[in-house]
Design a protein around this nucleic acid. Sequence first.
DNA 1: CCATCCCAAACGGACGTTCACTTGTCCGCG
DNA 2: CGCGGACAAGTGAACGTCCGTTTGGGATGG
Lengths: 208, 208
Amino acid sequence: MTDSAAPPEPATEAPIKTRREQIYDVASRLFSERGYHATSMRDLAGELGMQGGSLYAHISGKEDLLIEIVNRAARQFDAALFTLRDAPLPADRKLREAMQRHIRVVADNMESATVFFHEWKHLSPTAYARVTAWRDTIDIFYRELVSQGIDEGVFRHDLDVKMTANLILSAVNWTYTWYRPGGALTPRDVAEAYAEMLLGGLRASDGG
Amino acid sequence: MTDSAAPPEPATEAPIKTRREQIYDVASRLFSERGYHATSMRDLAGELGMQGGSLYAHISGKEDLLIEIVNRAARQFDAALFTLRDAPLPADRKLREAMQRHIRVVADNMESATVFFHEWKHLSPTAYARVTAWRDTIDIFYRELVSQGIDEGVFRHDLDVKMTANLILSAVNWTYTWYRPGGALTPRDVAEAYAEMLLGGLRASDGG
DNA sequence: CCATCCCAAACGGACGTTCACTTGTCCGCG
DNA sequence: CGCGGACAAGTGAACGTCCGTTTGGGATGG
């Protein structure tokens, strides 16, 4: 049961979210604000107007929450970046686009992104290993992008590939610490400014 | 035979650390590896070969450890950067030097730096406010550096000051996530490569 | 009537911290 | 030389509290 004839289907026409979804949302917020271990199930339940034990009708346990939040964040990054992987674009354009998408994922999911960057250490070994492997693929994505750019002659030939990828990742990932949705800057603004600085450099071209 | 000749005074000439210092050191490591709330006083004591309660002969409580670790890290950044504040250097040289010192502090104190970046949220309001204020001063330091560079004509005049400072801070701060002391790269290597990329840009200069 | 949602209470265990007590070492004094 | 007190360091058990989780039962509504 509980699979084919499940009438409590989320009515897609209404903004109504499953109780389960609400729990994930609030958990994302609390985990990002206070951290995973500093958030108790009773805190979480309280924000949803219920008792601690009642949560267990909807989820299987605390770590289930963390795993789901982290996995969703990872899936967002995947969805954003991996269509770009083999896109027929020059490397500078591709870098611009990748940074824009990457920053947009962070900006549109500040809470889960924060949880993703801060709390993944607390996952059980299996989920921990999965996240580590996933991070490597993102790393490789940017390294390949840089390599491609060097081969094409778009990027300087004396770049260190790993270090360059690290620098790019620093820029896009660190946004979770300072970006404020609803402020003056859109994710696109940030990405454009960053890409412009990274590609063209900070130094004045004339210089006198 | 635990400590044969432990002088009651902290003999500053010997590499002997007081028990208190040892506690801070181990706490830095554990807090950075597992996080503040996921480290118990009994864990900490166990690593030092003693019982949980024995810690309280040397420290006043768990939060005392966190405050001290975070404060020490902050002091290191201060000491490294604030002599540069009014140094008579062109902005590009000053940026190089600042990045090098900043990264060196992170690299030489990976554990406390990690605690500093991850666990400061868990400080009590007073200490929390102090760290927040401190972060602002670092932010201002880099903004002033960028401003100076623009005024001098060393940096591009169309740079957004805040965004540029953010980009620089991203690069130097994010090193705590990937740098490995004892590896092939010295802090200087990283800083030089980063500064070179930031100042000169990734794009090939010839390119037709 | 059944299913869903939630409450209220309880569970064992881990937490930070306290405390009376032992241990080992040094020092002054006869 | 031996004794006794001071002292710092560590033990191990206990404290109250909070934790994640389980359970049995009560309301509500198709």
